[in-house]
Write a protein that binds this DNA or RNA. Structure first.
Length: 434
RNA sequence: CGGGGCGUAGCGCAGUCUGGUAGCGCGACGGUUUUGGGAACCGUAGGCCGGAGGUUCGAAUCCUCUCGCCCCGACCA
């Protein structure tokens, strides 16, 4: 992408309405535009990041055996009456009426709908287990939306639903998602810690919130420091195992949110921090399958009400949470896997023939190599270019200027560390693509 | 929903108390000089002062109503 043509409305000053750093930086970096309280349009840069995050979620869901589908945002109130939640849900649910005065709603979640779809088609235990997901916009009419995308009203969520014949199967499905979530966040370059969550009336120990540590987090969390040293991607036993050992290892360390924290049972040496919830997994048995009649015929010919679980990742919130966890005073520092561009080629002097020639050549080579590259070919002053690049947080900045070219070198800067080195063009290319 | 605050140019703000023909900085546009960390100078454009009523000779400013947004609390990916 050429910056001279890219729709990237960056701001020098921080808009007054933004209080938290992720909101401020997303506005300044030209990623989003608020259209109503808690509702945002995603501009090209933001949309690129959102899609990268969604794609990692998608790949890990697929890898864990879940299947992608897409359910609508608008649902019928009828479905929710079957589960009893239409009355129970309260004002967070946006209720609307169509032209025939039929009661509809903008879905805050999809348990009812997926259960309805499931029961229509699945009749035999032989069809189990099943795990279905979609990545779709949700709406929850929060009393007070705030913190930009951290607590919006409309948000993009990956939600999936597992269906099993028995509790043991449901627990295995749960452990698979537990692993999938750890892998998902690890791949995004962030440390999300699973913390025991309230299971409400269901009871048991099968609900975890996945929390990212960040100073601006909404809730107080407590965990053992050793958590931060675990390497999930290295520990991954694969989905063919029963995952019991893995699950045991990753739930043995203490980690709890404020609500679940119990100083009496907690170890003495505890890390206290602020946390942002980015995912939540939940086993809930027959809470929906029973009232909605999701029943299959078991091996013995008798009907079995299926065991269900649901699993959510706040995809749009993750984007904000990553910024909360990874920024400095100059702007965003994207972890490589979710960065909107891998490298920015900064032509320091756009009207200099040699600078332009080398920049274009580097740009073309990187594109040919399949690298997501942004070329700053604007006729701006160097300071403005550097400031923009730091602001939008591209992991590598490859600066091409007349001073360096005279000596046959370009400057390669790593956004995360600020480390700069002068290299011949080919060496810089190798470093960026390697 | 309770409590607090704010709506004036694209963005950040002053002006409101004490009514008198709307201003500053940044940004945009044109020009000249510049060019390795958000340049300098000259010039230009841009505002029903959120909206509707009212008071007044006269309202951004006072009164009433309304809409929107932000912050603090109870809810949540």
């Amino acid at each position: 992408m050429r910056m001279s043509q890219f729709f990237l409305p960056t701001l020098k000053e921080t808009p007054a309405e933004a209080q938290v750093v992720s909101h401020q930086l997303m506005l300044r970096a030209g990623m989003i535009r608020q259209t109503s309280a808690g509702i945002y349009a995603w501009l090209p840069l933001g949309w690129k990041v959102l899609q990268k995050v969604a794609q990692i979620v998608r790949e890990e869901q697929d890898r864990a055996g879940a299947q992608e589908m897409l359910m609508p945002t608008i649902q019928s109130a009828e479905l929710w009456r079957q589960s009893g939640r239409y009355e129970a849900y309260g004002k967070e649910m946006l209720r609307i009426k169509d032209r025939h005065d039929r009661e509809m709603l903008y879905g805050p979640t999809n348990e009812e709908m997926i259960t309805d779809i499931f029961k229509t088609f699945v009749r035999s235990y032989k069809d189990l287990p099943k795990n279905l997901y979609h990545i779709q916009w949700k709406f929850r009419d929060e009393i007070r939306p705030r913190f930009g995308l951290m607590r919006g009203r409309e948000f993009l969520m990956k939600d999936n639903y597992s269906f099993d014949l028995d509790v043991e199967g449901a627990k295995l499905s749960y452990r698979k998602m537990f692993l999938a979530y750890l892998r998902t966040f690890a791949r995004m370059g962030i440390k999300a810690i699973p913390m025991r969550a309230d299971t409400g009336p269901i009871g048991g120990d099968l609900s975890h919130e996945f929390i990212i540590l960040a100073e601006t987090g909404e809730s107080q969390v407590f965990c053992e420091k050793r958590w931060l040293d675990l390497d999930v991607l290295a520990d991954d036993p694969g989905y063919d195992s029963d995952l019991k050992d893995f699950f045991a290892k990753y739930t043995s360390l203490y980690a709890a949110t404020e609500e679940m924290h119990d100083a009496a049972t907690a170890p003495a040496e505890l890390e206290t921090a602020r946390g942002i919830e980015v995912g939540h997994i939940f086993y809930f048995g027959t809470k929906y399958s029973a009232p909605m009649g999701a029943v299959v015929t078991g091996p013995d010919g008798n009907p079995v009400t299926v065991e269900m679980g649901s699993y959510g990742i706040g995809v749009s919130r993750v984007v904000a949470a990553i910024i909360e966890a990874s920024h400095d005073s100059n702007g965003i520092i994207w972890p490589d896997p979710v960065a909107p561009f891998h490298v920015a080629v900064v032509n320091l002097k756009a009207d200099d023939a040699e600078c332009a020639r080398v920049s274009e050549e580097v740009y073309a080579k990187l594109q040919a190599a399949g690298v997501d590259v942004l070329l700053d070919d604007r006729n701006e002053r160097p300071g403005a270019k550097f400031a923009d690049m730091d602001l939008i947080g591209i992991p590598w900045q490859l600066t091409i200027g007349p001073r360096g070219l005279k000596n046959g070198v370009v400057e390669l800067k790593r956004r995360a560390t600020g480390e700069k080195q002068e290299l011949p063009v080919e060496a810089a290319l190798a470093k960026v693509t390697g």
